[in-house]
């Protein structure tokens, strides 16, 4: 599983970087002073979470993101709250929040519409409480009503992202994020291993083991606030 994820990351990186191979073979270069001063602030709403809240009756969630540009880099924060109430033969409730922060690297800074393809890295942290209630039929002890809960546990993990921002109208962009979540660590749960982790997703594989890696998609509706003019750098010509 982990090996196939590494292969996927390698393939994504390879496909993304192939167009840039050979770019260093410029004949005439003009040294331009790099502009590290921020010029744009992106504020986004996680549409996939809103859609999930609408479609899935057991889940309500809200998420957003903010990023600020520094040359080709973006300092990014994502956050949200999540509440899950799975009512089956058992009742599982989980509520908490998450925060992710990290850096994105814009691979197409020359795009005249300020569309963006970027690779990113995030450190993510989640804090939540959950509870599991169920009854068990036991041939020796009869029907038992069991209740377990975890209070204020935290989890942290790392994410590798491929992000695409496309202008849809003036300063409005649609952003999609493919994220690979790895290196998850949960602080000692009180009574049981959580089934869900806000911001991470399902903690259990369909089977008997905890997930060590996860993959996710997010879609953002982003508004682009520009607080100073910054020229789009010209593409180097060979």
């Amino acid at each position: 599983m982990f090996l196939s994820i590494l292969k996927s990351i390698y393939n994504i990186l390879l496909l993304t970087l192939i167009p840039f191979i050979g770019m260093s073979q410029t004949v005439d270069t003009v040294r331009i002073k790099l502009d590290w001063n921020p010029s744009r602030l992106h504020v986004g709403l996680d549409v996939s979470r809103l859609m999930g809240t609408t479609i899935k009756p057991h889940k309500s969630s809200l998420g957003g993101m903010v990023d600020l540009d520094f040359h080709r880099f973006l300092l990014t924060f994502e956050g949200g709250v999540e509440e899950i109430n799975r009512l089956k033969t058992y009742e599982y409730t989980n509520q908490g929040s998450f925060l992710k922060w990290g850096i994105d690297y814009n691979l197409i800074p020359h795009n005249k519409y300020r569309n963006m393809i970027s690779l990113g890295l995030r450190y993510a942290q989640s804090r939540f409480s959950d509870q599991l209630n169920f009854t068990e039929e036991n041939p020796w002890f009869g029907t038992q009503t069991l209740q377990f809960s975890n209070q204020n546990i935290s989890a942290h993990w790392t994410e590798i992202l491929l992000r695409l921002n496309v202008q849809v109208w003036k300063n409005v962009f649609l952003g999609s994020v493919l994220r690979i979540e790895i290196m998850k660590n949960i602080s000692d749960p009180d009574q049981f291993i959580p089934f869900d982790i806000p911001g991470w997703g399902r903690n259990w594989k369909s089977g008997t083991d905890e997930k060590t890696a996860n993959m996710g998609f997010s879609y953002y509706l982003i508004y682009h606030f520009s607080f100073r003019e910054k020229e789009i750098p010209l593409k180097k010509i060979k």
């Binding site: 799975r86 058992y90 169920f134 068990e136 009574q191 049981f192 259990w204 008997t208």
Partner: peptide, 14 residues
């Protein structure tokens, strides 16, 4: 002992 949800569609178990 540790309770767990073996799968979303199945009963919780220990």
């Amino acid at each position: 002992s540790q309770p767990l949800i073996y799968d979303l569609s199945c009963e919780a178990t220990i």
